[in-house]
Amino acid sequence: MKIAAIDLGTNTFHLVIAEQNGPELQIIYKTNKPVKLGEDITKDNLIIPSAFNRGITCLQEFKAELDKHNIDIVKATATSGVRSATNGQDFVSAANEQAGIEIDIIDGDEEAQFIYDGVKLSGAITSKSLIMDIGGGSTEFIICDEEELIWKKSYNIGAARLMQRFFKSDPLNEIDKQKILDHIENELKALRIICEEYQPETLIGSAGAFETFIQMISPTIAIKEISTADISLPEYEKLANLLINSSHQERELMDNLIPLRVDMIVMASLLTNYVLQEFGIKKIKLSTYDLKMGVLHSLRS
């Protein structure tokens, strides 16, 4: 049986196709497109026309790929960029009419659950952990251990949303930096309380920015061939400091930093730094498995 998951993120649309043989899933096709659906979304809370059209075109391309593979089941999930937009339902309707893809707009709780399911499959959870998935529109946090999901919450502090609201200087000056940190602190009050209670030992970064961090730290790592890896805390801190204090032009020249993340990686670094420092976490891991893998897992027969 062939199954497929489409993840409509605020920045990037992902398609992954797998073949199920017994209990095992074998990935047979994987791609992503930097759609930037959330471009300028914080201004009027709308998917702007150019982003709307990019999204539909991408889904038409995904549908052509799905048809080539004769998929038995496909599930397309839309997250913060669609669910927070006043014309999000219009986008869902257009996707169905123009690309033949039915989209399920999932809430923050469902998103966090799928992320947890994906990360669990990676084998990254080996102790009391805080999973963090930095999206464009939202960031999900999950407290868990090897046995169970303990607590989960989605916050509207994704990298694109933070960037559009606060990224006013280049390089980021101290005033703007403090505004971002104050906003993060105000948003994450509940997370602080739960972390004080459960004392997670490890921060597990779910794909996205954390893949960029590890590729910049260890360029030889075969990111497509691993499900999890340790990230050196001193090396991460050194890299984050470099990214936060560099200009857009300087970051553009850095190896293994894709154009889509040239500015958003600064927001991701500030957010990650805050979590590590405020909650006393001394260990970081990457899980390359994220929401997409969680959705695929849910489709297995």
Rank of each mutant, 00 (worst) to 15 (best):
F62V: 00
I103Q: 07
I106T: 11
L25P: 09
I106E: 01
I204H: 00
E197W: 03
F91V: 06
T79Q: 09
A190M: 09
N156K: 15
P234F: 11
I244D: 02
V74H: 09
I223H: 01
D44Y: 04
E278H: 07
L271N: 00
V82T: 15
A94K: 13
L257C: 13
I157F: 02
T31D: 05
I47P: 12
G9P: 15
M1C: 06
H183N: 07
I180H: 00
A5N: 08
H14E: 08
I150H: 13
T79A: 12
N87P: 10
E97Q: 15
R54H: 12
Y29W: 08
T228E: 14
L239I: 06
P171C: 01
E61T: 02
Q60N: 05
T31G: 02
L8Q: 10
A18I: 08
I226V: 05
P34H: 14
S227Y: 14
T288A: 00
G38W: 11
Y289F: 14
D176C: 01
G208N: 06
E146C: 06
I56V: 13
K177E: 13
K33L: 05
L291R: 06
I115M: 12
A76L: 02
G158T: 06
A64G: 01
T77F: 01
E201G: 05
I258G: 03
I180M: 04
P234L: 09
I47S: 09
E39V: 09
L239H: 03
M163E: 10
R300S: 05
H248V: 12
K168A: 05
E187I: 07
N53A: 14
M132T: 02
D90G: 04
P171Y: 08
P234C: 08
N156D: 08
C58P: 00
T228R: 12
I103K: 13
Y116I: 07
Q60H: 02
K68E: 05
P171W: 04
D90F: 01
H69M: 09
M132L: 11
L243D: 02
L25V: 08
T10M: 08
Q215N: 13
S298E: 12
I221T: 05
P49K: 10
C58S: 13
D44L: 08
I217D: 00
F91G: 09
T86Q: 15
T79F: 03
T79V: 09
R54D: 04
G280V: 03
M132W: 01
V35D: 11
